[in-house]
Nucleic acid binder design. Structure first.
Length: 524
RNA sequence: GACCCCGUAGCUCAGCUGGUAGAGCACCUGACUUUUAAUCAGGGGGUCGCAGGUUCGAAUCCUGCCGGGGUCACCA
């Protein structure tokens, strides 16, 4: 089945055929670019470049630019169009008399459209209306657009006919990027954010590494994995849910600081805070503990906020979020007590369940004490923590890879950073006692046997590594997408991931040569 | 997975107490040599998400399905 082409698509295919008939290649090979829109606008100097009466001859400002035609204003023998390149838009002035015989009337006016990519050579001047403009002396088609571009016009900062359909924007992100400059800016900021983090870590001597995405045993977090298969070895493999266990092997190996920025995959639901594949930073530093890591994260995130937004104070929706150091450090049980009035420390599983029920939560018999505490925290505390806040000292049941607290029995040395009511970072003093780690894994195995699909698998090779001795180590994970949401003021994770996961559209239908045939048929 | 909202031209939308579709931009034809949401005159373009049902008649009412958004649940 062939896709039925719209009137405008037929028109553009007809134009393409006519161009070819005239000997104009609709998809040529190369164009020399010497300037971009924003630099031209910034560097044009009226005193030097603009001709004036009785003045000295202006110094020619010649440029060769390339980009997409975004708007056109055609008059009889001359026309203006806006050309958009990566840096922005600049106006181009075209006159019939400046171009080869017939080009203006037959090619530019009839066969070029909004959305086509062109190259322009010419000189820069300022029009009577005061707009810096490239006067074209040469104009070439560089790529014919066969689909019409949704046109966005603007005047006095008011924008008309903006594409607001989220589905359209996510599925055809390439179009979203063409027509929405603020979307281009979001992903520039995201890149700047990651570059800043990387530089910060590199400057401190930490080694950037790459560990396996395909893993025979998955671990490092509680989540359901994606499962795949390797044919040659005929074995089941998992897409990683975390980098943690491999990075700690590298600490065993003698590197004293390692980090990885990469994708993790979790087979869970989608929401404005969750995408099945997402980007995580994990960092492990030898001879440090979680107190040191709290200082480190504060410094890192304050620095990143300033580099990306220009200020440690960041606007996110209705909130102004301040990454300025220091941030409050609140033990989990204190935070819960403050919000609910209940002190959960030392309470038995059944006491916890009773309290949770009194608070209106649904508790079933399969939930352990750690799970119940987590429920209470997630319901009554987390959503209220808008400013960056360290929540510290978690129940041991929730943290099978964290070291026991040096003073508080039943707890581990772990912190999360909550920002905007959501977890942004997770860190601990890493468990390096191999026997304790084995016991924790075995507890996870019991949970798994009892039906907890998110419980961890026992990783024998990781235990073997620990048995060779891992130094005291502090570890950290940061959700890069969530950080990007806050630093770019976006409400949904889909707005900071270029191609978020969506259900597939109807079967993709090709627009084949049939379209061109239709175009011919419609002419006769 | 549950609930709520949405799906009409390439884009933004109107039409929805039932009488088989409209506007602006975009597109096509013509006019116009400094325009800028260019302007002026004329014109074409739609399986109204899909499939059933009710009805003489459905974009409109009902049911189911598909896709998207949001909230909840799980999770980072």
């Amino acid at each position: 089945m062939k896709r039925v082409l719209s009137e405008q698509e037929l028109e553009r295919r007809r134009a393409r055929q006519q161009l070819e008939a005239m000997g104009i290649h609709p998809y040529p090979y190369r164009w020399e670019v010497t300037a971009h829109a924003s630099e031209i606008l910034a560097s044009f100097d009226d005193a030097r470049h603009q001709p004036r009466e009785n003045g000295p001859a202006p110094e020619p400002y010649e440029v060769s630019i390339a980009g997409r035609i975004m708007t056109r204003r055609i008059m009889g023998k001359a026309a203006f169009f806006d050309l958009q390149d990566e840096t922005g838009r600049i106006q181009v002035y075209v006159r019939r008399q400046d171009l080869p015989e017939g080009f203006y009337d037959q090619v530019f006016k009839k066969l070029l459209d909004i959305g086509d990519i062109v190259g322009v050579k010419g000189y820069v001047f300022r029009t009577r209306m005061g707009e810096i403009t490239v006067h074209a002396q040469r104009l070439e088609l560089l790529a014919k657009a066969l689909r019409p571009l949704p046109v966005v016009k603007e005047q006095d900062g008011k924008v008309y006919n903006v594409v607001t359909d989220k589905e359209f924007r996510y599925r055809q992100r390439y179009v979203d990027l063409i027509i929405n400059p603020e979307v281009r800016e979001v992903f520039r900021k995201r890149a700047r954010m990651i570059t800043t983090i990387r530089r910060f870590l590199d400057e401190r001597g930490y080694l950037e590494v790459e560990t396996p995405v395909l893993q025979p045993v998955y671990g490092g977090a509680s989540a359901r994995p994606f499962i795949t298969h390797h044919n040659a070895l005929d074995m089941q493999l998992y897409l990683r849910i975390a980098d943690e266990l491999y990075l700690k092997r590298l600490i065993v190996g003698g590197y004293e600081g390692v980090y990885e920025i990469g994708k993790d995959f979790r087979n869970e639901g989608l929401s404005r805070f969750h995408n099945p594949e997402f980007t995580m930073l994990e960092l492990y530093v030898a001879y440090k503990d979680y107190y040191w890591m709290m200082d480190f994260v504060e410094e890192l995130l304050e620095h990143v906020a300033i580099e990306v937004t220009g200020s440690p104070e960041v606007q996110w929706g209705a909130h102004t979020i301040s990454f300025r150091r220091p941030w409050p450090r609140i033990p989990m049980f204190e935070a819960i007590k403050e919000r609910t009035g209940y002190d959960l420390y030392g309470k038995s599983r059944d006491e916890l369940a009773a309290i949770a029920r009194k608070l209106g939560l649904e508790i079933d018999d399969t939930m352990g004490s750690g799970k119940i505490i987590d429920e209470i925290f997630g319901e009554f505390v987390e959503p209220h923590l808008i400013q960056p806040t360290f929540i510290i000292d978690y129940p041991i049941e929730l943290s099978p890879l964290a070291k026991r607290h040096r003073e508080k029995p039943g707890l581990v040395e772990r912190f999360e950073v909550i920002v905007g009511g959501k977890e942004l970072c997770n860190a601990f003093s890493e468990l390096n006692d191999p026997d304790d780690q084995r016991a924790r894994f075995e507890e996870q195995a019991r949970l798994r046997a009892a039906g907890d699909e998110e419980a961890m698998q026992i990783d024998e090779d990781f235990l073997r590594a620990l048995e060779y001795g891992m130094p005291p180590t502090a570890g950290l994970g940061i959700g890069i997408d969530r950080l990007a949401m806050i630093l770019t003021n976006q409400p949904s994770i889909r707005d900071v991931i270029l191609f978020p996961l969506l259900r597939p559209e109807q079967p993709a239908v090709p627009a084949s040569a049939d379209g061109a045939d239709q175009a011919e048929a419609s002419e006769s």
